[in-house]
């Protein structure tokens, strides 16, 4: 795939260490609009740590992040949101005791002219967007702990979509889901891609990677093994990168 113009995100030469252990060691990756880049590697390879620098959960020790070609300062999750970066976490970062609307708008509540949160308006907006993303969704009044994994994931995705995310980080979005719900999330990713979002997808399931990603960046022991176009490689090639840290021969990156 040939990329023209400036990348949506460029993480250049990122390093971060925890107590002497280099979790991420001089890694450079990028992401273009309308593209899904898979981040792969063993547990502890550093992919989650790397991406948390982008989402503001961690601060990198060295390196730089460029958004649309401009240097970005991301110190906390609030900064990340200001750059239209939304994250959907593996651990389903929802407040279990609140309902879908409260979670969707958490941190960005709609308020009435008097400054009170406008629950009715937020629920109406939630009903609208869920009608688009997951028409079977009914449980608007219950706390989200009463929802299934897929329903919860659709709340998390709705949050990203509603606030016009340009850059979406998905950390194993289908790990807790059944086959039907996985399919639903896969369709959502396709749709978001078509809308021009750039998506970083952290994924362990090699089939999902082959199906959903345009490119794949593989990490091992905190270092980048390489980035490949998914079309040009087989799943064995990618497994070789993950397990042996070996780049397939004759593949342009």
């Amino acid at each position: 795939m040939s990329h023209r113009g400036t990348p949506l995100v460029e993480m250049r030469d990122i390093s971060i260490a925890f107590g002497g252990i280099k979790a991420v060691d001089h890694v450079t990756i990028d992401l273009y609009p309308g593209e899904v880049v898979g981040l792969l590697g063993h547990n502890g390879a550093g992919k989650s740590t790397l991406i948390k620098c982008l989402s503001g959960a961690y601060q990198m020790d060295s390196g730089a992040i460029y958004i649309n070609g401009e240097k970005a300062e991301i110190r906390n999750p609030r900064d990340a949101r200001a750059y239209n970066i939304e994250t959907i976490y593996q651990t389903l970062a929802l407040a279990d005791n609140l309902d879908a609307a409260s979670n969707l708008f958490l941190g960005r509540e709609l308020v009435t002219p008097f400054g009170f949160v406008d629950d009715a308006q937020m629920e109406a907006e939630t009903r609208k967007i869920m009608g688009r993303l997951n028409p079977n969704f009914r449980k608007f009044k219950e706390p989200v702990k009463a929802l299934s994994g897929g329903q919860r994931q659709s709340v998390a995705i709705a949050r990203a979509v509603y606030f016009n995310a340009k850059i979406l980080i998905m950390d194993e979005p289908t790990a807790a889901l059944g086959p039907h719900e996985t399919q639903m999330v896969a369709e959502l990713i396709e749709e978001l891609k078509a809308q021009g979002l750039g998506i970083f997808l952290i994924e362990h399931d090699i089939h999902n990677v082959m199906r959903l990603c345009d490119r794949a960046s593989v990490m091992k022991n905190g270092q980048l093994v390489g980035t490949v176009n998914v079309k040009d490689v087989t799943d064995e090639d990618i497994l070789g990168m993950i397990i042996l840290g070996k780049k397939p021969e004759g593949v342009a990156c």
Partner: peptide, 10 residues
């Protein structure tokens, strides 16, 4: 309900 979720929500 979920301190991490709150922090990550900004």
């Amino acid at each position: 309900g979920n301190p991490d979720a709150a922090e990550l929500s900004g």
